[in-house]
Structures are given as structure tokens and as C-alpha cells.
Simulated assay, not measured.
Amino acid sequence: MARHFQCTACGKCCYGQLPLTIKDAFANAERFPLCFVWTPLRQGSKDYPMVASLGTTIKLADRKELAVLIVPTAYIPSELPCPALLENNLCGIHAEKPARCKTMPFYPYRDEQYQAELLIPRKSWECDTSEVAPIVFQDKRVVFRDDFDTERQDLEEQVPLLRRYAEFTLKYSPMIVDSLAKASMSQKAGQVVTSLSSFLTATKYSDTKQLAQRQLPVLNAFAEKTVGHKPHVDFHKKYTDWAKEMAYLASRP
């Protein structure tokens, strides 16, 4: 069955968290407040094989396994817009926007045959899915696939680095396994959030100081945006804590 879709530039999808590739996250370190979001998935899900291949697997005490995505993320409250969203709801960095934005609404973390489910607009989104819109999915395949394939390739290439990060984190913060197991029981996709600084430390990233200098003003700005807002208490605390970590990394010789 053919599925139709066209973006109407309503800007409704440009709010809240934005999953990124490592390449896009670091290219936009002066724009987005960055972290790593761990999303666990239990065995038996149709998405388990893809998540395991693009993320990592973790053994639980009951001899079962979790597949875990570890995703560089622009960590933004759902009520706040992307920093690049203009007042006219257009993208201010359209020519250089992240792969995730180019590929929308498709999602390369999911097997291609299941992508049709993502063509149903969320509540309040104004995407055009009428028959006058272009056919974008047919015979369980994405039709216009250059952006989809590019993002998938980027995701595949970063797997070794993310697994090295996971190995380091599990060794030095073993309690994260309990947090992931608990998150996996949530009806909605549960998440565990870790800092950018933990990734830089674990992977011994070569340009840590420069990246920290670019990231620090962003975290301070978002800390200021969220101060005093009760729904954003957790975001504010994270921004504040991460800013301290970035300040330390930025000042190291």
C-alpha cells in the first residue's frame, strides 16, 4: 500500500528533544544542550534486532537481555522550540540542519518495513498525508531515500564508539543497569540520561576542551530559560550540573 506525506512547515515537530548522530551533535555544540539518552527495549519487540545492532545489549540478573539505544540528544523540554526555529516556523539552519530533521518523519533506528507507522501525524501536527501529497513509502520501502540512507550509515558508523562508551559506563557506574531495567518496564519508552562530559571522558575525545567551550554558553542559556519553572525543574538541574562539568573541561590545560 502506498503512503503519502508532505511537510507543511507547521513547525510542530521542532519542539522538545531532538535525537542526533554524534557527527551532528558535535557540529551543533554551540546551538543545542547536549546529553546522551539511553532507551532500553526488552526482548520480543519487533524493533529489538535493529536496536541491538545500532546500540548495545546488556545482560540482566534474570538471564534476559536489554537492547539499548544510546543517542546523542538535544535535551530540550517538550514545551520549548528548537533554538534554530524561526518566528515564521521555518528552520534557521535549513541548509545545514541535522540528518534527523532531514529524514523526518522516517526513523532509521527502526527496520525499514515498519516505517509506515511513522507517517501518522501526532496530535496537532499539520503534516499532509492526503492523496495529493507525494508517495513516500511503497512496498515496505522508503521511496525518496537519500537522507534515510545517509542517516542510517552515520548511525552504523558510530556504533563502535557508542559501545566503548557503554562499556566504560557499565564498568564505572554499574547501577545504570538497574535504572535501565526499570525504564524498560515503562509503558512509554523509558529513558536514562547521561552527560556529555561522561562520553568525552570515556572515549578520550581529542577536542574535549574546544567542545566544552562551545557547549558551556548553551547550557548556561538553557539553565536561565528554565529557572523558576516548576515543570522544568529536572531540566534546570541537569543544565546547571552539566555547565559545571563543561566549565571544568573548558578550563583544563
Rank of each mutant, 00 (worst) to 15 (best):
A27H: 06
S173Y: 14
V193H: 05
T201V: 04
L20Q: 10
T21E: 15
F26H: 04
A27N: 03
I135E: 11
E151W: 08
L18C: 07
K182P: 00
Q43G: 10
A189V: 14
Y109D: 06
S195F: 10
L85I: 09
R110Q: 10
C91S: 03
E96M: 07
I176D: 02
C10I: 14
Q213E: 14
I70N: 00
K46W: 00
A67F: 05
A116T: 03
K244H: 14
E167V: 00
A99M: 09
L118V: 01
C10K: 13
P231A: 09
A2G: 03
T208G: 01
D178A: 14
H4A: 03
A84H: 08
L41G: 00
P160A: 12
F148E: 01
A84T: 15
R141G: 03
Y114P: 01
A221N: 11
Q113I: 15
Q210M: 13
Q6R: 15
T150L: 07
E157S: 09
G190T: 06
S195V: 01
A67M: 06
V71Y: 01
L161W: 08
D47F: 02
F222I: 03
S53H: 08
D24Q: 03
F235H: 15
D111R: 14
A52W: 03
A29K: 13
R122G: 10
I176Y: 13
T73F: 04
P134C: 06
S186N: 11
S130G: 14
N88Q: 15
S206W: 07
A181W: 08
L200D: 05
E87F: 03
T103R: 04
Q158C: 02
A221H: 10
L66M: 08
H229T: 07
R122P: 04
I58C: 09
S173P: 00
D139I: 01
D234N: 07
K102A: 12
R163W: 06
T103Y: 03
T8R: 08
D234S: 12
A212F: 13
T73N: 12
V37H: 01
A52D: 10
K237W: 12
S251T: 10
A221C: 05
T201D: 02
T103N: 10
F5T: 04
F26G: 00
A133K: 11
R141V: 04
R122M: 06
L196C: 12
E30L: 00
V159Y: 04
D234G: 00
G11K: 13
K140Y: 11
F5N: 00
K64N: 07
A221Y: 15
P231E: 11
D147H: 13
K64P: 02
T57S: 05
T240F: 04
G190D: 02
K97P: 08
P108W: 15
T103W: 02
C82Y: 05
